[in-house]
Each structure stands twice: as C-alpha cells, then as structure tokens.
Nucleic acid binder design. Sequence first.
RNA 1: GCGGGCAUCGCCAAGCGGUUAAGGCCUCGGAUUGUGGUUCCGAUAUACGUGGGUUCGAAUCCCACUGUCCGCCCCA
Length: 409
Amino acid sequence: MSIKAQKGTKDILPEEITNWQNIEKIAYDVFSKANFKEIRTPIFEDTALFERGVGDTTDIVNKEMYTFTRSDRSITLRPENTAGVVRAYLEHSFYRESPPIKFWYKGPMFRYERPQAGRQRQFHQIGVEMFGVEDASADVECIVLATEFLKGLGLNDLVVEINSLGCSVCRKEYKEQLKKAIAPFLSGLCEDCRNRYEKNPLRILDCKNETCNKLFEENHLKESVSGIKLCNDCATHYEKLKSYLNALNIKYVENTFLVRGLDYYTRTVFEIKSNNLGSQNAVCGGGRYDGLVETLGGPHTPAVGWAMGVERLNALIPKLEAPKIDYFVVSDNQVETIKLVDKLRKNGFSAEFDYTSRKFAKQLEKAAKIANYAIILGEDEIKNNYLTIKNLSDSTQKKQTFDELIIKN
RNA sequence: GCGGGCAUCGCCAAGCGGUUAAGGCCUCGGAUUGUGGUUCCGAUAUACGUGGGUUCGAAUCCCACUGUCCGCCCCA
C-alpha cells in the first residue's frame, strides 16, 4: 500500500459509522421539529464567495483555503457553509418568501491547517441558518436547537457562552472604546495582538497568550470592556436574548471576551465548549450575521446560525455498536440457502450466509458474531420443509416453517 | 508558519549493538465429519517508515526525509 489518505483526512469506517448515522438522525429529528429544512450546497464555490462572505481579514480566507483554477475560474473547496447557504438563499430568491427561512446542513468542509486533536483538513460540520428575523427570538431558537441537539446526543454538561458584538452602527464606537482601553498597555501585548490593534481590535479579547491575559487582568480590561455601551437597539436586543434564555431555563455564561474569528458576525455571538476535548474545545460556534446577505448582493436580511464540528461531537460520545443482522443461514446446501436468504430479504429481514459451505461449527461461529438468529437449514429441514431457528443470545432453538417465521417476527 | 513526542505483522506490543525479531488479538484449520460464544493444538513463506552514515556487526547509535500524534496560532 503506497497511496494513503491525504494528511488531515480520514476514512470513516463501518465500525464507526453507527455513531455518525446516529448523530445525523438526531440532527434530522431535532431540526425537523423546529421546521428547519435540510439544504445541500456544492462542496466547491467561486473563491470570491468566501473572500467577500467570510472576510478577507480572516485566517480562514488568508491562509487556509484549498483554492485552484479551472478554465480561468478560481474555485475554492468550502471552508465553512454559511457563505454557501447565503449564496443559495439569494440565487433561489428565498428573500421573496415569507420569513423566517430556516435551513440546516451537514457535510465536509476543508481547511489547510496543521492537523492535531480535533482538527483535520477535511472535517464535517452540522449547522443551521435562519433568515429574516431581527428579533432575538431567532437567536434563542438557534441556541435552543443547539442545546436540544446536544441533549439528544446525551451531552448535557456543556457550557453555553454568549456575547454581543454590536451592529455596524455601534461597532465602530465599540472598537474605538476598546482601543482606548487597551492603548495604555499595548506595548506589553504579544505581536499578534499589536497587529490586531489596528486591523481587528475585537480579536485581542480572544487572545490566549498568557502574558496578554495577565495584562488584561491587571488592568481590569474585562470590567472596562463590559462597560462599553452598545447602541440602544443592540443593547435591547442583547437584553431580550438573555430574558428569552432565562425564560427557557437555558444556562449561559456571559463572556465579554468571546469574539468569533469570522468577520460577518454582528450582535449575538455564542460558543458551546467542552472540557474534555483538549485545546480544540469549541463544539459549537455561531451568531448573528445581519450584514452578510447584503454584503453578498441581496436585500438587507437579518440572519443567525451556528455550526458544530461532527468529529468533535463524536469524540464526546461513547462508541455505539453496529446493529446485528436478523438472520444468518447455516447450511451445506447452497441452492436452498440462497433461495432462503433471498426470501428473507424480500420479506424485510436482513440476512446473510456463509459463502464457502464450511462445517456448521464454523458457520455458527460467524453467525454468532454478526446475527441475532441462526437459521439451520440441513438435510432434515429441507426434506421435511421446516427451519431450525436458533436464538444466538440465549441458545434456545425451535422449529418453524418459513411462514410461521415471518409472521411471528 | 513555529515548537515537542512517536514510527516493529491487519491491530496491540516486547526488544535498548551480535536473537531463527517474543507474546497477545484478529483470521484460517483441527480436537468436535449438523450446532457458536469456554478450553486445547496448529497455521498464517515478502513486520523493524524511507534514504544515508557509524560499526566486524544495527530494529537497536547518528543525520536527513516522510508520516503520525500533541501543543502554539486559528477554528467546529
């Protein structure tokens, strides 16, 4: 074997597929109840979609995209799916329909990064996007969807963190105040933070550098930042969000340091974290992006959404056993065997047999591993037209005709 | 882009300069010629990541490369 899976990519093998199917089924169930519809968009898009949509100051666009050229077109493997869903929303004129428009999606995403725990170059996300609702009830709907989904997966002890970044109107103000608050000790911050100071000061709040964090604490940055005022509309929106969350008994932590890395977020941002994932601990990230639809050429349309990393979710979920098949036919008569297996399958059962007619002991051994019942079809059974059904978990046996078998089950 | 760990059969894994390179699991066969999950035998004729170097001799030491894992960064 000389050709191997590419760095940062993984085969999802049959032994682990049960977990994936389970996650996808629960997603479908939870999202359907809230009337979210699944949408599937292409895996590659015009590079410009991500440059304009995700933002050309982001790391994702600057250094992590798989971009190539075909027939003079610059194509990029999607690094996330919000931009693609917005593109589809516009392309199919969903803005002409009565809001809200609610989508969910699942699928692979691609980012050129150094792989490590919880980070691959091809990874999978499940996400939701909701268009057309300005009220914080939409934000809460999305957050509830996330917590319900996680609950469905048996994950109850995750922490929801929220923050508001303000709208485009008050964001400038916010940035200026933030810069003022940071200015006195700017020289003590790390190189990245000093670069961010002009380009994107919001991200300084998100810095994980120890010395930076110490400086933040010593200078009480957290207090001074949380004192920065959002404009009236944004403040009201944020208060509403919190009151809705309280009304639904959703526990959350306000984190004024929470800033998402993508440029399109406005007002609400949130993250759901786990303590059991190493350093890539965010399981879910999302927020409101009221300006994105317009940025991509559509009418002003408020929107909210989030995405979860399926591999990260899966790392928190115990491994599920693949379900066993119903019947394994044990016989030394291949013609009768394939006829019986065919009949079983046509009646809705899963059935398998031994393709080599080995001795019964070996066939049974195989049967016990993969099936709930063995059907023994030997000379006597064939001559007298009955089947011996063996329950492989308790070793009980009984004789039945085929008709009795399919009726009883 | 920057750091650190690790690379022995399909999987796990001993070995630490001289071995026919242990063992376990899985798979296959037999004990048990129509009955498994326990036990006991046996088999599996291309395993020391790749390329250099040191040495009489290297899976074992050195260098480079590649891969992988972990951390920084970023993000889901």
